[in-house]
Simulated assay, not measured.
Amino acid sequence: MRPLILIPALLLPALMLIATASRAASFDCRKASVPSEKAICADRELSGLDDQLAASYKQALGAWQGRIAEYVRADQKAWLAETRRAGLEDDDEIDNAVCDGPLTPCLRDRYRARLAAFASPAYRHSGIYLRSDGSKLLIYATGALAVRVYNKPAAIAYSSREETGGAAWASSDRMRVQLDDDSGKCTLDITLNGTEAVVSKNPGCALKGVEGRFKRDLKDVLANYELDIY
């Protein structure tokens, strides 16, 4: 018979804490090497949020029968890379951009925002869409809705965001963008199906080169662009 090993009662809480910490996050806490990872492993709430995010990410991969899984993976990779830099002291500029203040509360807020993004029905529309002539449509559909079009790689044709009343959802798969041009009001309708965006404008709109079909670029992510839309 195998001998019975007795563990002193005083050691049980500590041992349980170690066991919980090692499996509380979506990564192995024994290999945590940067401040953000250590903070996640040391904080029960953060560990729980990390577990929730792993589950939400898995669900997002299956959106539209997995048709945008490549984008979701690239988007999450970019988010994780930025989050992992939080708290690093070797680059104050990056650190301040990720977390401006105490690390643990900042990471909690960051995780909650990411969970909210995955939970939003609009997340599946967020991304970069390309037209055959090289024009680019950017749609920030989580948080504040924002839309931008580049007629050329570095030329902004139009941009609009929700706070100014310029962009709004007409339905779950269709948005309407209000713009001002020389002739007055210009209305753009954008219909989305996950892998394509179709942009049309009202007859009186004088803006050129903004309509047409834009195919989603599943390899490019919004993290590669600045959200400085006015």
Rank of each mutant, 00 (worst) to 15 (best):
97 A>M: 10
68 I>S: 00
199 V>S: 09
163 E>D: 13
119 A>F: 10
116 A>V: 02
22 S>K: 05
229 I>Y: 11
196 E>V: 02
72 V>S: 03
70 E>Q: 08
10 L>A: 15
179 L>M: 13
164 T>D: 11
26 S>E: 04
207 L>G: 03
227 L>W: 05
9 A>M: 14
202 N>V: 14
168 A>K: 14
27 F>Q: 00
105 P>H: 08
74 A>I: 08
107 L>Q: 06
187 T>Q: 15
89 E>N: 07
193 N>F: 08
66 G>S: 11
53 L>S: 12
102 P>G: 07
72 V>L: 04
93 E>R: 09
8 P>I: 05
9 A>T: 10
151 N>K: 12
136 K>R: 15
191 T>N: 08
144 A>N: 12
115 L>G: 05
212 G>L: 08
47 S>Y: 08
170 A>T: 15
77 K>I: 00
77 K>P: 02
228 D>R: 13
76 Q>K: 09
21 A>K: 09
55 A>C: 04
96 N>H: 09
41 C>A: 09
99 C>N: 01
155 A>S: 14
50 D>P: 06
169 W>C: 10
71 Y>N: 03
53 L>K: 01
91 D>C: 06
82 E>N: 10
138 L>Q: 10
92 D>G: 05
156 I>F: 15
214 F>R: 01
211 E>Y: 01
111 Y>D: 02
105 P>T: 08
85 R>F: 06
100 D>M: 02
130 L>W: 04
83 T>N: 01
177 V>G: 07
58 K>Y: 08
187 T>W: 04
76 Q>E: 14
226 E>S: 12
176 R>W: 05
58 K>M: 01
98 V>K: 05
179 L>E: 15
128 I>Y: 03
124 R>Y: 05
90 D>S: 12
127 G>I: 01
60 A>V: 10
19 A>T: 11
41 C>I: 03
202 N>P: 07
88 L>T: 01
39 A>L: 00
143 G>W: 06
185 K>V: 15
39 A>R: 00
82 E>R: 13
86 A>H: 03
16 M>Y: 02
201 K>P: 10
34 V>E: 11
205 C>E: 12
198 V>C: 03
121 P>H: 12
65 Q>L: 02
78 A>R: 05
54 A>F: 04
62 G>I: 05
198 V>P: 04
131 R>D: 07
13 P>Q: 08
26 S>P: 04
50 D>Q: 08
87 G>V: 06
19 A>R: 15
47 S>P: 09
155 A>H: 13
46 L>Y: 01
216 R>V: 03
219 K>L: 13
74 A>F: 12
156 I>P: 09
208 K>G: 12
70 E>V: 01
103 L>S: 01
216 R>K: 15
4 L>W: 11
146 A>I: 05
97 A>R: 12
205 C>K: 12
26 S>H: 04
3 P>D: 14
19 A>M: 10
167 A>V: 12
102 P>W: 04
13 P>A: 12
